[in-house]
Structures are given as structure tokens and as C-alpha cells.
Design a protein around this nucleic acid. Structure first.
Lengths: 177, 177
DNA sequence: TGATGCATGTAATCCGTTACATGATTCA
DNA sequence: TGAATCATGTAACGGATTACATGCATCA
């Protein structure tokens, strides 16, 4: 799924500027499974506008730069429906962390622990993000579904890593005896 | 992490051809968190050989095409150590499935169920793959770690989706009353 | 006889990230 | 005064996928 579809999908729920979309992708509901940079969002938005799938409205702001608010059109809704009617591609998960853990014998025990703790902190950040989204009142069916999924997966990862850390520490303690 | 590092990492555990590396990435231990096509693996291998990080040995086979077996060198081990000493980048997870679930109101209930069932079947395939790897005797520390992680995460996803399906069906039954 | 597995490779193309460019305001 | 936030955009670059090219053996 390209950035164009992602933007259009987001705009189907609310009007937004490119800046806001980026923020939503990295701090909001989608943060743990979507990524997009300004370098891809702004051109995508221009493309969507050129194709008549969204409209643009320029708004002046006092004390802040002007902004361009995008809103989905009827044609946009139709296009989105069509794109979504294709059963989605498989999830893509890439983990340097796991690859590194597989190659543990190359690492010192200390480095391994640091890597695990960093991974844990990323996972906890994502969990916190979901909690916050829930607190902010995202409660429609779609939001509930994806928050629940994220929570389930992230919680399982955290539990696993925590138990592994305990295991490693007790082993290290034994080895030190 | 680029394909070059991935290949070198794999070769640090065993000799292999490009073809075998691809297979291992898509059917083996790594299948759920690594992806690479021939179009990236073969050039990467040539690069590694040119840099002296691996050696190549051509083997003739009867009834099969010749193959090039790659093996890591001392310089390769050193380079890998260095690359791994950097704490790994954050995991990247991209899910069209979740995005589509967020936009459920665009979908028919039937389409949603189909999408969930397809997702479930992917997840179960990945789980089966891990089971098989375990059955085939991958039991060193690194392998155990990543198989356990994968299992924990995938199992949690499957449970979540299964419970969601039940929930949706009971709601549909109620609506039909 | 046609698909599948084994085996390697290249070129075109796509898509996205990174870095750069600009600029006002607010907060520490 | 310097960093962070708001706000939009382009150009260079990188990295990988896709499609193409080749060819033999085996199995259904």
C-alpha cells in the first residue's frame, strides 16, 4: 500500500493537513504499523488533489504558517472503496533486533541485554501510545479493533522479553558462582 | 539492515548458495521477519566476495545446474562483528490489514471476515514454519530465542483475531434476530 | 507436455528516505 | 539565544522489487 492510499484513507475519517497526517502516522493510532515521511506525504497529497480525489483549502493562521487543509471528495471515496476491495497484502515485519538475537554468539552478554532493553523500551512506547489514543476517546469499531490487536501483540512481546531477561540474569548469576 | 549484512550473517552460521539463502529467508527460521529477493541477494553476494568477506567455491552437480557455495572469511567475521556492535534499528512493521480494519466502515461484513481469515491463515503458516524449524532441531540459543519470540507474538495475534471473529459472528446473529 | 524445482544473474523501474531550503513564533 | 513547533516543499540518492533471460531434470 503506497502513501497515496494511506493519506486518502486517513482523510476519509477527517480533514487534515500534510503536517497533521504525518503526526497522526507517527504518534497516533497508526504509529506501530505505518510510516511515511514528508518527502512522500506532500507529493502524495498533491497527486490526490490533481486526480480530484481530494480538495484543498488554504487557511491563514495568525502566528503560524499558512496551512493547506485537504478533504476527501466523492470520487475519493469511490477510489478508496475500490482500492480496499482488494484483499490486503501480507503484513511486512522486518526486525534487525531478531536477526541480531539470532547471532547472539557474536555479541557480549552486556550488548545483548542492552539490545533487549532497547527493544523493550520501544515496545512500551508503542503500548503507551495506544493507551493514550484510547484515553483520548478513539472508540469506533475500527479504532477499537486495531488498538486491541496492537495491545495483544505488543504485550506478548514485552512479556516474552521480560521473561528472557530474568532467565539470562539467573544464568549469569549461576555462572558467577 | 541491508541484504549484504543479512547474507553475511547467515553465512556466519553455515556455508550456502544464494538460492539456499533465499529459501532459508522465506521458509526457515527468518521467514516472519526477513525478506529478500534474488535480485538483491545475488548482487549482495558478489559484493561480499569482491570485498573479501566471503569466498566462493563452484560446485558441479549431476542433473542440476552448477552452484556457487559461499563461505565467510576471517575478514567477514570481523566485519560482521563490527556491524552488529551498533544497536539495531527499530523494528519495522507495516500492515495493510490493520489499516483496512481501521477503515472497516468501507467494507462489507463479508469482506472483513475474509480479510481476517486470510490474516489468520498467514499467521498460522508462520507458526507452522516455526514448529517445523524446531522439529528440525534448531536449538542453539539464538534460534531458541527468535523462535520463542515469533511464537509468542504470532500466538497472541491468532488468539486476538479468533476472539474477534467469534464476537463478530455473535453480533451478526443478534442482528439477524 | 506442462508445471515445478534447482540455479544464477541483469536491467528497468518504483518508491521512499534523507537532506536541503525557508521562515515565523514560542518557550526555556 | 538557541531549540522546538508549526508548516510546506523539492531534489538527489539509495535500495529493493519485478520482470526478464536461460536451461536442465523430474514428476504428474
Amino acid at each position: 500500500m503506497n502513501v497515496r492510499t494511506l493519506c486518502l484513507g486517513f482523510l476519509s475519517t477527517q480533514e487534515a493537513t500534510g503536517y497533521e497526517i504525518k503526526k497522526e502516522f507517527e504518534e497516533g493510532l497508526f504509529s506501530h504499523f505505518i510510516e511515511a515521511s514528508y518527502g512522500s506525504i506532500y507529493p502524495a497529497l498533491n497527486q490526490l488533489a490533481a486526480d480530484g480525489l481530494v480538495t484543498v483549502r488554504e487557511e491563514e493562521q495568525s502566528g503560524k504558517p499558512d496551512k493547506k487543509v485537504y478533504a476527501i471528495t466523492t470520487a475519493g471515496h469511490a477510489a478508496l472503496s475500490k482500492w480496499l476491495s482488494v484483499v490486503p497484502a501480507r503484513d511486512k515485519y522486518k526486525s534487525e533486533f531478531l536477526f541480531e538475537m539470532y547471532l547472539q554468539h557474536y555479541l557480549t552478554a552486556g550488548h545483548t541485554v542492552v539490545a533487549i532493553e532497547k527493544q523493550l523500551s520501544h515496545l512500551r512506547d508503542d503500548l503507551k501510545c495506544i493507551d493514550q489514543c484510547r484515553a483520548e476517546g478513539n472508540s469506533d469499531e475500527g479504532a477499537t479493533f486495531i488498538m486491541g490487536y496492537g495491545e495483544a501483540v505488543l504485550t506478548a512481546s514485552v512479556s516474552y522479553l521480560e521473561s528472557k531477561l530474568v532467565e539470562m540474569k539467573s544464568r549469569a548469576a549461576k555462572a558467577a558462582e
